[in-house]
Structure formats: C-alpha cells, structure tokens
Design a protein around this nucleic acid. Sequence first.
DNA 1: CTCCCAACCGAACGATCGTTAGGGTGCCAG
DNA 2: CTGGCACCCTAACGATCGTTCGGTTGGGAG
Lengths: 191, 191
Amino acid sequence: MSARREELTRQAARLFAQKGYHGTSIGEIAEALGVQKGSLYAHIESKQDLLYETMREGARAFHGGLDAIDDRLPATEKIRLALRSHLRVVADQLDVATVFVQEWRYLEGERRDEILAERRRYEERIRSLFREGRELGELRSDLDDATAALLALSASNWAYTWLRPGADTDELADDFYELLLNGMRGYATPD
Amino acid sequence: MSARREELTRQAARLFAQKGYHGTSIGEIAEALGVQKGSLYAHIESKQDLLYETMREGARAFHGGLDAIDDRLPATEKIRLALRSHLRVVADQLDVATVFVQEWRYLEGERRDEILAERRRYEERIRSLFREGRELGELRSDLDDATAALLALSASNWAYTWLRPGADTDELADDFYELLLNGMRGYATPD
DNA sequence: CTCCCAACCGAACGATCGTTAGGGTGCCAG
DNA sequence: CTGGCACCCTAACGATCGTTCGGTTGGGAG
C-alpha cells in the first residue's frame, strides 16, 4: 500500500472519529488531502472501503495488544496488562479506536459481520481472563465473570471519550486495576 | 404537546438510536409515521429540533433519577441508588439514552452547549458522591474520586450497548455496586 | 528518449437530502 | 352554520451526496 493511500486512510479515520461516518463527506476527506473528490477513486472503490479499513486497523491493534501478553502469567497480572494494552491502543490511535467503538454499525454486508465477530472475540478474550482468575483462585470464587468483564470492558470502551493523546495510560490502567481488584471500601487492605 | 407530536419525537428517537442522526433521513421518520415527509414541518422547524428534544428528554430522565435520591442517605447508599437509577433509565428509555450518549455531538449551536453542560453536570453529580464517600470515611481515604467516578460512569455510559429492555437492572446495578465497593480479589470480605 | 503508470483534474451524473409553498381535508368550538 | 385549526398531501426547490469518466501530468524504469 502506497504512502499516499495510507495518508488517505489516516485522514478518513480522523474525520470519521471527529464527525462520524455519515457526517463526513467524500469531499471533506479529499479537501483534507488537498485534492479533488473524484481523485480519491483512483485509490478506493467506495467510501465504505475507508470505514472498513479503519475498522480492520482497530481490530488488529486491539487483538495485537492481547497477543503480546505472556500466556503463562497469573490471570490477575494478565488482566492488568490487558487494561494497559487497551488504554494504550486508545491513546496511541485515538481516531482508529474511536471509529472502532462507535462507527462499526455503519458497515454493510459481510464486512459488518466480519468486524462484529472480531469485536465479540475480543470481548470473549477479556472475559476468559476473569474466568481463569476465578477458577485458579486468584479472584473470589463467587465472582460473576460475565459481570466483572462487563465492568472492565465498559470502562475501557468508554475511554476514547475522555482519554487525551499522550496521557500516561499505564498508570491509569494500574489505577483501574487496583480499584477493580481491591474495591473502594474504607476497610480495604492497605497496599 | 399533542399526542401526534409526541409520537413523532418517539419515532425519531428510535430511528436516531438505530441508524444514527445523519444516517436517518426525514423521509424515513415520515414513513414510520405513515406520512409524507413534507408533512412533518407542520410540527417541527428542522430536523435538529427532533434531535434536541430527544436530548432534552434524556437529560431530564437522567437528572430526574438522581433528584429522587434522598440527600440524607449515606454516600455509599446514594452511589448504589445512583447506579440503579442510571441503569433503569437506560433500560426503560433505551432509544433516548442511546441518543443521549452517542448523538449529542451532532447538535449545533447553543443547543449543543446547553446539552453538553447538562452532561457535564451529571458527571459532576456522580463524582461528588464518591468525593463525599471518601470525605465521610465510607470509602478509602486514598481513593482518587475522579478515577473512581470515571470507572463507574464509564460502565454506566456503556450500558446502552448491551442492556436489553426489560432486564432486571436493579439487580445488575447492585452487582456492579458490590463489585466496585468490595473488589474482585479472592480474599475479599464475605457478604 | 520513450513509455508507463500512479496520481490528479474538471466536469458531470443521477440520487437523495432537508426544506418550502400552496392547497386540501375533517373535526370541534362558537 | 361557520370559522378556525391541527393535520396532511403534492410538487417542487436548491444543495449536496457518492460516484463515473475521459483527459492531463510528472517522474522513474527500460
């Protein structure tokens, strides 16, 4: 893929994140590249292509982050690293992450099915971490891992709305982790 | 406001939630009412009106839920009730809540500023509950209430994506509350 | 020097968008 | 009986949308 083509995808992701897929016109994307809108069709076949590629990039980034976590670590440590990975992806690729989280529903046809499956798989990978933690005794035995995963995932998925690029996401992820594990109660064990 | 007018707002909210503001045309809204699109302008001045009114309804519902919480209760109890209220609003008015959370950025002019202020005020009200809990010793003294509120709010704000209408939101809210307060750690105090 | 090809231009396409205008109902209050 | 009013229709407006197409450009490979 040529450098110009990558720049096109990047600008599209930026505008989709800022104004939404349907709120962004081909003309605006072309203008961001300093080009007539018709010229874009030397690179793409349709506007949908730009959305689809941004989604693919998002899926690759999020899954890639989980892939890098050593499977042999304790479950709780993997949860901590997963939180770090997720927030880092959001901060480092804010546009892509934003589109991945909120614009997926504007995909059409089998591309939509494909991305939806990737999103579901990601959620399942997170959920399995909590299940593993419970089964190995690292987390409370009465933990509802679906609810626990939901809580962690929800917080992470919402991150794109308030995370600023350049923030120290590792520290924030560790704060989240500590809160989720130990709770907010007054008599919590000191660390 | 006439019954017909309310039906119009309701259908608009439903379609905005399902297909997004820019993804929904005036013609589709008219079709949902069994009417020609031009006829809608007997009720509204612009498409923006429909978005704005849905947002107002959302703001009213979310703030109204908090208003009903007795100020003299312990902070932790108020947090529990706030979680219940939020999830109940999402479940009972899923369309309105969905639009309130994701479509606000398509509002224009001062209406956008107004709704944005309402959203910020809501977040601040939640945050103050955690601050109060910490200051009164109900929550750990080293609690970062901004992070804590962020965690709770993020989970709640994400709820519209997975909550199905008719779900037992009180029970779910209590589960969230219990997890947030006591944590997921294995040696957590039994309840 | 020539050829190629990625990249872009300029103009136009049909479709759809939100909105307006003028006229027509049927019902309810006076 | 009559007036008004809420509601709707039909037709059209200009603007903008995504997309197509034939032609032009410039630089690197042979």
